[in-house]
Amino acid sequence: MREPVLSVEHLTMHYSTRKGDVHAVDDVSFELHPGEVLGVVGESGSGKSSVAFTLMRLLPENAHIKGGHVWMNGVDLLTLPEDEMRRYRWKRIAMIFQAAMNTLNPVYKVGDQIIEAMETHGVAYGEAARKRVAELFEMVGLDPALMDRYPHEYSGGMRQRAIIAMALSCDPDVLIADEPTTALDVIVQHRILKNLLQLQKRLDMAMIYITHDIAVVAEVSTRIAVMYAGRLVEIGSTEDIFLRPKHRYTEALLQAFPSIHGEKKTLLTIPGELPNLLNPPRGCRFHPRCAFATEICKEREPEYRTFNPGHLAACWHPVGEENA
């Protein structure tokens, strides 16, 4: 296996609010290998988007990185001064935001906005940049003639494609996609996902795909990281996660998710509510909602255990070890 392009070690990030510290990301570690798609699944408040914003160093003022490293080519992105980080951003590591289609500036032509992004990063200038935009449009499945149109002349799906083109314009090594299709209808979502995966393969990029939708993650990723309440609870290959889940939260999540395919199985209800991150539960953060929780789950944080090469989970009573 090739060296990882991105390696996150013990990342911890808190938001300070008037009510206290929100433990948004707590001790998260993972590696991203070249050419792979790592799906990050979690519900609201799981910290999945916060991880992405920390990697990009695009955090609001009240966010504080409490510890950890993000290694990329031997450089710790978290310690880079802001002007050097700016050079990394978009060129080495790019991001498609949630509801990004509303982030296009309505008063400039879409093509010009992408050209501007390339010029500020010194990728291409003038005519060369225009040619590159035409190529990019072609790649994401947009008519290159559209580059001289304004955002309001685009449909939601077209705008999302333009945003993908913009993210790819500086030829990044790593692309982070944060719920890029959440606001779109299924048919359009399907087309964009297909397109995104084709591009990812063609450009040999590594991608982090963040979503709350387990079905989407099953379709796009080669590996999956499951997050709950700021912690990474399980990580493994897509097959490991879906066919041999180990963490009780992963198992419950899979059983709660409806599908139109196959037998109509009974959906499982997870009792309780998502925890308040101002004051997360002690021990395993899932224990108040877990049917298998015992005393130890309330007391001590579970350590990661390797179940398969590359398949790790932090659970005191993993699936398949009912009597342990």
Binding site: V186, I187, Q189, H190, L193, D213, I214, A215, V216, A218, E219, T238, E239, F242, L243, L254, F257, S259, I260, H261, G262
Partner: peptide
């Protein structure tokens, strides 16, 4: 048919 075929399935072994 088109709508159903575009719905993502939470099962990596299923190729539709």
């Amino acid at each position: 048919k088109a709508l159903l075929s575009a719905v993502p399935i939470p099962d990596p072994t299923y190729k539709r």
